[in-house]
Design a protein around this nucleic acid. Structure first.
Lengths: 375, 375
DNA sequence: TTGTATGCGTTATCAG
DNA sequence: CTGATAACGCATACAA
């Protein structure tokens, strides 16, 4: 260790004598100290020159900048983070990355973060409370400046989020928000989305409409179910408790959806249509109906939330409710950066609610039909 | 600034005198120094106690650990990074996150990274060389320990990757690999995948099979095209240059695919089937044919690479070649961590080649048909 | 067994 | 205009 240190200390002067131009610097990274030593200046001078400080003479600046350029100097971001107590990176916790909705949202997050010089550190809860909390802990031991979260379906206890927020960590929730934490939130109009979809099913002649939603704990589930119920009520259809099912893990496991579908189909009066109230549940239902050889929508109508880039192309069976995931990610990140970079604590928090797209198939027969997009 | 510092210095002793138990520590993070001061120990003792060093007495250890627990101490990872010259985070550069293949790969990457205590920092090149290089620069100013890359379609100049690798940065390429950099690589058998798909089209009776591939610069494109050509040759079908098209940006922009498709359909002898040689190109083709009201596969056969979770469900039109993206991500990360944590420089590099899945539709008529999966 | 001093790379403060 | 020094939080070689 000591010899290594010494060798480093002695390497550079020798290097100067021989040839400044092509110092190898294979593994050792270039630091301000190296520049200072090579140029016979102090580190503070070099630092100031690099930051283009007014107190440095033009000649010195030029000298330093040129040399820095030549040896390909880059400031060590970790040292900067330590000093400035900020890492210029934001953490993201979602249920799973390989999910169209979330990956589109992350796309939006990364776009804005990148434009503002922030890194994005992602982690997945896989709908598990435990994993979520571990990530929360891990990310927030002061290695991130802010956090964007869509909570896990399992999560019932929001204390850790609340504590963290109270301690001053900027947090923005999107999609699955925590209603009783007072911070920025970004969602779509879940009520309206579910309402429109249900109404569309009714207009197509379906009478016995069932709904499969994500965990009851999530506010988005409650809102979506409320929209579904309202649409039924408005059309004078009586809601049936046995027609509403929940998947505790948001359909992450197919068996969960299978169970819900079976529960619906085993009833004396079967539903004639299913409204799937989340991405995974939608594709899950589709998959299950397909494997059971139940024709969609001839035997059973199906409509659901989905952000897959192929849903618009699948047809005729499936109509979908699509969330503006990319925009949601962008907006969430914008709000977060605002929180991070505002000097004084923010007191007014916004809840941005975007409109979901309803993409419908007009005909279930014509192979060439075009989707109709309703905002 | 100075008063802030002073207040911090004076806060703790006062705090000790009043009540240790519920120091607020709202925004100020707890450090080893705080523990030392509160307990009347030196920072080194505290540090050693926390790391369970053998040179510390059991009583002191207990004291320190309990107090640390109580005030919810967490070591500052940034300080650790600075000291240990490692950040315990790995960088990932892909074309775009909102792409089934890449998001599945990232899923695998995150899984393994998480298990090993590493963070994943993601960034997207959006197929642009410039963006890729900026990210490369940004990530690698020593803030990451290693890098997992699938290069942008635009990239023709791999010098920066090579230099970085030569400087000792562990890099693992996946999917779109850089053949002349000697490091670990993870791909599928692109040749075989394209070969099987082409062969399948021929067996289904298609004679005039065209191919649309990603940028010619990418080795995966060349391999896939080679597989396509070999299959044609083996069945005694003459290849036609005019039937092979390339999208410089891998179909990221739909117009690019549109152009390729138009180019094919405008020829005197039109192709009767299209082989799409990347994810985006496959969905792009599907979208374009749909919008032009060209029936698939009755008017034109279509088969392509795709990792969307819905492709298996779409049918009958589309048969697909699916890559084991998740596993590729896992393997790449495993290899990378091996590189990062091996003390001595690795000399033997592996190229892992996985088998792609070919998921076929046997019938183009029966709505209820099941996909056949060929390994 | 514990404390002191040092360094990781950077910048801010203060003194020339 | 420039240099020495301290500090960010932590761990360790060395001294006691």
């Amino acid at each position: 260790m000591f010899t290594l240190l010494m060798s480093k200390l002695y390497l550079y002067p020798a290097c100067e004598l021989i040839n400044l131009r092509d110092c190898p610097m294979k593994f050792e990274a270039v630091t301000i100290k190296d520049i200072a030593k090579a140029l016979g200046l102090s580190t503070s001078t070099v630092s100031r020159a690099l930051r283009d400080s007014y107190e440095i003479s033009p000649e010195t600046k030029k000298l330093v900048l040129e040399y820095a350029e030549k040896i390909n100097y880059h400031p060590n971001p970790i040292a900067l983070s330590l000093r400035e107590r900020r890492s210029r990176s934001i953490g993201v916790i979602v249920a799973e990355i390989a999910n169209s909705f979330f990956s589109q949202a992350i796309d939006g997050i990364e776009s804005i973060a990148y434009k503002n010089g922030y890194n994005v550190i992602i982690s997945q809860s896989r709908e598990s409370f435990e994993r979520e909390q571990i990530h929360l802990n891990y990310l927030t031991s002061r290695s991130i400046d802010g956090l964007i979260v869509s909570v896990a379906s399992e999560t019932k206890d929001f204390r850790n989020f609340k504590d963290l927020h109270d301690k001053g960590m900027p947090i923005v929730f999107f999609d699955r928000v925590v209603t009783d934490i007072d911070t920025h939130k970004v969602t779509v109009d879940n009520y309206q989305g579910a309402y429109n979809a249900t109404r569309h099913l009714i207009e197509k002649g379906f009478k016995q409409i069932a709904a499969i939603a994500n965990s009851e704990v999530l506010s988005i589930s409650r809102e979506r179910v409320a929209g579904y119920k309202a649409a039924l009520a408005d059309q004078g259809i009586k809601e049936k408790d046995s027609f509403i099912r929940h998947c505790a893990h948001g359909g992450l496991i197919l068996s969960e959806v299978e169970e819900a579908v079976s529960g619906l189909l085993e009833q004396k009066t079967k539903p004639d249509a299913i409204l799937a109230l989340s991405d995974k549940i939608t594709t899950g239902c589709f998959r299950i109906l397909k494997s059971r050889e139940i024709a969609v929508p001839d035997e059973i109508g199906l409509i659901g939330f989905s952000n897959s880039d192929l849903t618009e192309l699948i047809g005729p069976p499936l109509s979908i409710i699509k969330q503006p995931a990319f925009e949601m990610g962008e907006i969430a990140t914008g709000l977060l950066l605002q929180l991070i970079e505002s000097k004084r604590p923010v007191t007014e928090f916004e809840t941005k609610t975007l409109a979901p797209q309803l993409i419908l198939r007009e005909s279930s027969v014509n192979k060439k039909d075009r989707p109709v997009i309703i905002r």
